[in-house]
């Protein structure tokens, strides 16, 4: 639509130029951007780094559970079994185009892969008994947050939105301490990105948190550690 009115734009910009402050502002960044564990700040040495990884995972699990997510931990070779167990009686599972085939090798229900052959419709995803399994780009221990950036193992945004049950596979190496490290890890910030912290919830009734509104009401997280 090439009919944008330039006069409002030019007038607003001119007005702002006339009144804006003329002092340049320097931005201090004294907040923490490095590793964090158990709420303490500091740069760890190499020896501490391994211990820290363990702590980060503990922290992530603690925070996810606090948000009423179901959390399981398993070794890499046990992923199919663990997923099958979490899925239980779920009749249909949806996966993004690039999800490893191995993930659902122990699951006995119906598997539908987005884009194979056709993109799944909203109705497909909204059908009763549909769960979705995705990976994630990075996870934040301090806040219990999963970042999905549309990479092939995560897929389109609606995949992790419309089904009522979302399972997310997190590898140990994807877990970081805080928000700054997580955003820095995103490969391309202009890809549609969603930060998920627990199942959908609301604080709109008496400012107290209740889980379960429009997004998936069940969030399961499988943390894969060595």
């Amino acid at each position: 639509m090439g009919t944008v009115d330039r006069s409002a734009r030019d007038e607003i910009l001119a007005r702002i130029r006339a009144v804006r402050p003329d002092e340049p502002v320097s931005v201090p960044r004294e907040y923490r951007t490095g590793p964090v564990a158990g709420g303490t700040v500091g740069e760890p040495g190499e020896a501490e780094a391994a211990a820290l990884d363990g702590e980060l995972i503990e922290l992530l699990v603690d925070r996810l559970v606090d948000y009423r997510a179901t959390v399981r931990r398993c070794a890499p070779q046990d992923v199919p079994g663990a997923l099958a167990e979490l899925l239980g009686e779920v009749p249909t599972v949806v996966v993004p185009p690039g999800a490893p085939v191995r993930w659902l090798s122990a699951y006995l229900g119906r598997i539908r892969r987005d884009g194979d052959p056709e993109p799944l419709t909203v109705a497909d995803l909204d059908a009763p008994g549909v769960a979705v399994v995705t990976g994630c780009a990075v996870a934040i221990a301090q806040t219990g947050t999963l970042l999905l950036d549309g990479a092939p193992d995560q897929g389109r945004r609606l995949l992790s939105l419309v089904p009522d049950h979302h399972l997310c596979v997190v590898r140990a190496g994807q877990v970081v301490g805080g928000v700054p490290e997580a955003l820095a890890r995103l490969a391309d910030p202009t890809r549609p990105t969603t930060l998920v912290s627990g199942p959908s919830a609301t604080s709109d009734i008496e400012l107290d948190r209740v889980e379960g509104v429009h997004g998936p009401r069940r969030l399961d997280v499988l943390v894969v550690t060595d």
Partner: peptide
């Protein structure tokens, strides 16, 4: 600590 969903 973090709101349930943030979209970018």
């Amino acid at each position: 600590r973090m709101n349930p969903y943030t979209s970018l």
